[in-house]
Design a protein around this nucleic acid. Structure first.
Length: 798
RNA sequence: GCCGAGGUGGUGGAAUGGCAGACACGUUGGACUUAAAAUCCAAUGACCGUAAGGUCGUGCGGGUUCGACCCCCGCUCUCGGCACCA
């Protein structure tokens, strides 16, 4: 395919841009700061694939656009280089991650990123595995510890048998490891947790006002999973009370047995001697099951009788206590009151073990199935006849008065488990001393350097490879000086990325994680974009960390990202691109064959940015053809006044492209540019003025080519000499007879407007007009003008 | 099961309640060429018709409206998230 010489043009301009530092923002002197952030990648084996061109290209177009609107745009980039992804790749390559990471970062940055034509400011690069960075990740951990938000607990945790480490709740998807897809099992180890649950209510509440993609907010809301109900205490014969959580206190009179999870702390105490053997067997078997086996809904319920009984406080009936793994340890109190008549799970359990079922809500037929709908209470003492939906609050209040229980809010969100029994991460900066107990590493001793271990592979024993290095482990206690040992687990990669956006403006800072002045000036982030696969991972963690730093008085905002938009994903063969699936498309081929400009534009033209979709290389040729046509059009442009047709088209184009870029609908922005070029091509020669506008509007998308074309039309870098075009004249009504048919939806009205009226005039006339009910069937063309608060629809009559 | 987003030509996708299918891809025909590629021009939702023109068309069934891809009700399918969360 012949055409413009993309190779030399792109090489020429990326060099000139780099040499002149044109896209480096002077962070101190800026007047109109705009922090444009994209989720940074982890530099693993595959390199950037074509999906990255899409996900980085889109927000970068926005950055280019803002520059031309006069903003000082800061668009940094970095690498999330710690973590299991990178470590696993090193293992596969039989290299050491410390060596490997430099090569991969270099490849990503120099061979791939820098060819894209972005406005990324590489002077502020952040690499999370750099001690200069992770020193502050460790500092962050100490901050959390000081705030009482980091604690160590021996607890059963979700263990990935392939990654050989425990995982946070968020990193287990349908019982499988988020990273490798293995079914997780349970392992009990001492673990460090961060108390994100303390922030559950705030994390939920702020979702009401932050400007984020609705899809992301919904996922977070569901994940936080607030449910309101009551805690009720049941007495047992042994003197140990069992507290349960329920969202249906109105069904309390129908509770015919209690169920404890196998890990519940009272299991052994409440097991009678005759049941001991059975219970022990059941509990140990439950612990061996994988998460998948335990939670699969279609599996038959299992359980054993503990041998003891509890008293239902509301009707004093004696009910048996069972142990079953359909009750989860980590949710609520780990124990439930079973109301088989009105809960499908309890119903199935009661049927299987032949336990009594008592209906306490009218409606439904409990001989067939559980009735979970609404109705009137029955068999419920003084509450008989009350509507069940009203009874929830009434009974809760009554329980409080009687001292049986209290209102309680429970969240699905669990504390964030950050311990990883792996090598490639920042060591958790804690020391265990026999005399002083758990002692944090003093800030002055940071970073706790990750030792260069030859044998860094995961052990699978539940201990990190760091435990095998005596030089690392043995340390003097910072408090008393006596022999002590270090924590040997490293922290979760998501802790690294939970604060990286704070570091970018302050990368030079040696003595603190982020500079106060810079942070005030540049944060919170004006615009952030990335994938929804991080909705409950990275995006939840960053919000939590930001709130903590805010509460500690270190920053003055509590939400890190003013605006967030989730981009769609580019898939191939219906699947996410990954090396293991063998469906990775490398952009470098296209850089050589068609140029980065064409590739980036083609990707953005292919599918709506927030939706994503299937990669199809057929579209790339179309964009190349378009760019070639633009080159010809600009080359043949003539110095002459713009025609009326050119003017009208220009106004329409500027309007549309501007609003499309702001709405991240790049596909329609590009279509509009194509229409503009097509329209200008109708005349033998376009005017130079029109050509300039076209090039200016094209610049964010095909930056190298536009720069080259701009040179042929004028002087200097386009970013300085080609501001974003604005509508020079008001949107004029081109020809006579305009009729308004509709104002604000239902109202119907008609009026003629003189030729040459501006938007304002038409609007004023329309609003001043009393409404008339009439309708023209011969109305042919229409256009809409937006006036604050009202939509006015004009129909042009032929 | 629950929550969310969707269903429009051969394909990707456009359309504040107002000409459905913008813009592309593909296909077909034509021009240029010894030929091909590239490029340019034309056609391209389906059906009927030589044509002018007509009929039907946005997952299915209803409704609101002068007018519905768009709003409302009920279904259905696809994709994403959550899931024995009490």
């Amino acid at each position: 395919m012949t055409g413009y010489d993309h190779k030399s043009i792109e090489a020429k301009w990326s060099k000139k841009w780099a040499d002149s530092k044109i896209f480096q923002t002077d962070l101190k002197s800026t007047k109109k700061p705009f922090y444009n952030l994209m989720m940074f990648p982890y530099p693993s084996a595959e390199g950037l694939h074509i999906g990255h061109v899409f996900s980085f290209g889109g927000p970068d177009v926005y950055g280019h656009y803002l520059l031309r609107r006069g903003y000082d745009v800061f668009e940094p980039m970095g690498f999330d280089s710690f973590g299991i992804h990178s470590e696993n790749y090193a293992i596969k390559k039989n290299t050491h991650p410390m060596k490997l990471i430099n090569d991969t970062v270099k490849y990503f940055r120099d061979e791939q990123f820098k060819r894209l034509g972005t406005i990324i400011d590489w002077e502020h690069e952040v690499v999370t595995s750099d001690p200069k960075y992770y020193q502050w990740t460790q500092w962050l951990f100490l901050q959390l510890y000081e705030a009482g938000l980091a604690y160590r607990k021996e607890a059963p945790a979700q263990w990935c048998p392939s990654c050989l480490t425990v995982l946070a709740n968020e990193q287990v998807i349908s019982g499988k490891c988020e990273r490798c897809g293995s079914e997780v099992t349970t392992k009990t180890l001492p673990q460090w947790f961060l108390k994100i649950t303390d922030y559950a209510e705030r994390l939920l509440k702020n979702l009401d006002w932050i400007d984020w993609s609705e899809s992301t907010k919904t996922m977070q809301r569901n994940w936080i999973g607030k449910s309101e109900g009551a805690e009720v205490a049941f007495e047992t014969g042994s003197g140990e009370g069992v507290t349960v959580f329920t969202t249906r206190p109105d069904t309390l009179w129908g509770a015919t047995f209690l169920v404890l999870s196998p890990e519940h702390s009272l299991v052994s105490k409440l097991t009678s001697s005759s049941q001991k053997a059975v219970v022990n067997t059941y509990v140990s078997e439950a612990s061996k099951k994988t998460e998948i086996e335990r939670v699969s809904t279609d599996k038959e319920k299992t359980g054993v009788f503990s041998g003891s009984y509890a008293i239902n406080p509301v009707n004093k009936s004696k009910i048996p206590i069972w142990i079953a793994d359909y009750v989860l340890t980590g949710y609520g109190t780990g124990a439930i009151m079973a109301v088989p008549a009105h809960d499908v799970r309890d119903y199935a359990f009661a049927k299987k073990f032949d336990l009594p079922i008592t209906a306490v809500i009218s409606g439904g037929d409990i001989s067939k199935e559980a009735y979970t709908g609404e109705g009137k209470l029955q068999n419920s003492g003084e509450f008989d006849g009350t509507d069940s939906n009203l009874a929830v609050t009434k009974v809760t209040k009554w329980l409080e008065d009687q001292g049986f229980g209290k209102a309680k809010v429970t969240f699905h969100l669990r504390d964030w488990l950050i311990s990883r029994q792996r090598y490639w991460g920042p060591p958790i900066p804690m020391i265990y001393c026999e005399k002083c107990g758990t002692v944090p590493v003093p800030e002055k001793d940071l970073p706790v350097l990750l030792p260069n271990l030859e044998n860094f592979k995961p052990t699978g024993t539940g201990k990190s490879p760091l435990a095998s290095d005596p030089e690392f482990v043995n340390v003097a206690c910072p408090k008393c000086g006596s022999p002590a040992h270090r924590e040997t687990d490293v922290s979760d990669t998501f802790l690294d990325s939970s604060w990286y956006f704070l570091r970018y403006p302050s990368t030079g800072c040696e003595d603190k994680p982020f500079d106060q002045e810079m942070t005030k000036k540049w944060l919170p982030i004006d615009f952030y974009s990335g994938g929804n696969e991080h909705a409950v991972l990275h995006l939840m963690y960053t919000r939590f960390i930001t709130m903590v730093l805010h509460d500690r008085g270190l920053i003055d905002f509590e939400e890190p990202f003013k605006k967030f938009r989730a981009r769609g994903m580019i898939v191939l063969g219906g699947a996410k691109m990954s090396k293991s699936r063998g469906n990775v498309v490398n952009p470098n081929d296209y850089f050589d064959r068609t140029g980065a400009d064409a590739l980036k534009m083609a990707m953005l033209f292919m599918v709506p940015f927030e939706q994503g979709g299937e990669f199809n290389e057929n579209g790339v040729g179309g964009v190349v053809r378009f760019l070639n046509r633009v080159v010809k059009l600009v080359e043949s442009a003539k110095e002459r006044p713009e025609t009326e047709q050119e003017l009208t088209l220009k106004n329409k184009t500027i309007k549309r492209v501007t609003s499309d870029i702001e709405a991240m609908t790049f596909n329609t922005a590009i279509a509009t540019l194509m229409e503009y070029a097509n329209g200008l091509s109708e005349a033998p020669q376009a005017s130079k003025s029109a050509a300039r506008t076209l090039v200016s509007l094209l610049a964010p998308f095909a930056s190298h080519l536009a720069e080259e074309l701009w040179q042929s039309l004028g002087e200097g870098f386009s970013v300085h000499t080609s501001p974003w075009p604005t509508l020079e004249e008001k949107y004029l009504i081109s020809k006579d007879e305009l009729i308004v048919v509709q104002v604000s939806g239902k109202l119907r009205d008609r009026l003629s407007v003189p030729t040459g009226s501006s938007e304002e005039e038409v609007t004023r006339l329309a609003l001043a007009r009393p409404k008339v009910s009439s309708y023209t069937k011969d109305s042919q063309l229409s256009k809409t003008i937006f006036v604050p608060g009202r939509l006015i629809n004009f129909v042009l009559k032929k």
